[in-house]
Write a protein that binds this DNA or RNA. Structure first.
Lengths: 231, 231
DNA sequence: TCCGCCTGCATAAAAACTGCATAAAACTCC
DNA sequence: GGAGTTTTATGCAGTTTTTATGCAGGCGGA
């Protein structure tokens, strides 16, 4: 589960450099160009960390941080062109987690972001992990990677588990073969259609053995859909 | 309860300046002048944070940090006379939480220390020391570093103990190999996958000798999970 | 009804993963 | 400084999982 970073800088060029560096380090990024958009994005996307340029027009980074702290505990890394001691102290005491001055090294920025994330309290990721999926008499526990139908435990391989989780996440939603696999994996890996069928078949067989015969329905020409699962 | 800071710098004058600044901010400080003393003090006093000079004779700060991470998750703030990007990155990736170059402003140092402390989680030791873990017929007493199955005492090495504690801390939770080690040590340490297997194997063998054959289950492609332990 | 396209399934190859033995490196305790 | 212990690394065999493929049969539109 990649970390989600919000990058707020009014210079789109710098924003791009930062995003590129962070994404190369395996994070997901969203860029905004002003303070108001930053606040809005923080509320809507609940990022794991915010890279915040101090020198933005309209609402500067310090002000964003001040307002931010009313609604969120998200870590903030300040970015600033000013390298005055007093600014740094102000930023840190304002609730920032680090303060990097421009011009900065992308690699160092990434290192500092990683340090903060390492210490940061577990947020969404852990919550999502503890979430429990269930549909009808079928239940999935991502945290323990365990599944059961009607109390009977199911032994699923990891890809079977992931595929089923993809369906449980969107009940009553038809998923094409590509989507089935996209849910299972993160990236867009392409596998042969027949391969997907094989996984579906195996899942059906295991569920049927546990007494569930209506778990995955076929939608001819489109894909598959989660059934009633004995519900 | 004031925070406890360990200051390691070979220049007693600088050490004094730092301690003075931190104490003025309401913290308790202990100063040491070399790496070996730092490690010893960390183990004995379990400080909340370590200010670590990189340029110390004998054992430099980076080396101290490396060894340190084997026994503790305590936050580290590096202090260095060298202001090279590569040094900063190295320090941060080595497990440091911040990197300040000399000459530094005492007030900024205090601000940075405060930021780290604000984010730092209660150390693993604090969380676990007074607690007693048990699962099924398996019991661990972190305080006395003792373990037993069904009353029979188990002789575990410290890493075996730590790994098992990691599992006991979150029963029914699959832990990937990286997580297994992250629980045992501080985060951010990478060991080879096969190494983790070796530890798991040894733990299983010792538990099996005591009559517990279902302690750690393998979840293929994902990691390991605590079993029923005879419960 | 016929035909083209789609799905289910068996089989098997390819890839990935685990467990283990062995050994090197690091550490501890005299 | 050295012997014993602990921790880490590595290579390999055996196993499981994942993917691919070919074909029989089903579905649906013309």
């Amino acid at each position: 589960m990649p970390h989600n970073i919000l990058v707020a800088d009014d210079d789109p060029h710098i924003g791009e450099i930062i995003c590129f560096a962070l994404e190369k380090a395996g994070m997901k990024t969203v860029a905004v160009a002003d303070g108001a958009a930053a606040l809005q994005a923080i509320e809507r996307r609940a990022p794991d960390l915010v890279v915040l340029d101090i020198g933005m027009p309209e609402m500067d980074g310090l002000e964003v941080c001040r307002r931010l702290r009313h609604i969120s505990d998200v870590p903030v890394l300040f970015l600033s062109a000013r390298d005055e001691e007093i600014d740094r102290i102000l930023g840190l005491e304002m609730g920032g987690d680090d303060y990097v001055t421009k011009p900065f090294s992308p690699r160092e920025l990434v290192a500092r972001v990683n340090v903060i994330l390492r210490r940061a309290r577990p947020t969404k990721a852990e919550q999502a992990d503890n979430r429990q999926f269930s549909h009808g008499r079928l239940a999935l526990l991502p945290a323990s990677h365990a599944a059961s139908f009607d109390g009977r435990p199911l032994v699923l391989t990891s890809i079977e588990f992931a595929i089923l989780k993809g369906f449980l996440a969107r009940p009553a939603h038809v998923l094409g073969r590509d989507m089935v696999m996209a849910n299972a994996y993160a990236a867009n890996i392409h596998v042969a259609d027949r391969t997907v069928d094989s996984h579906i078949r195996n899942i059906r067989a295991k569920l049927a053995a546990a007494g569930c015969t209506d778990a995955i329905e076929t939608v001819h020409g489109v894909g598959f859909r989660l059934g009633r699962c004995g519900g």
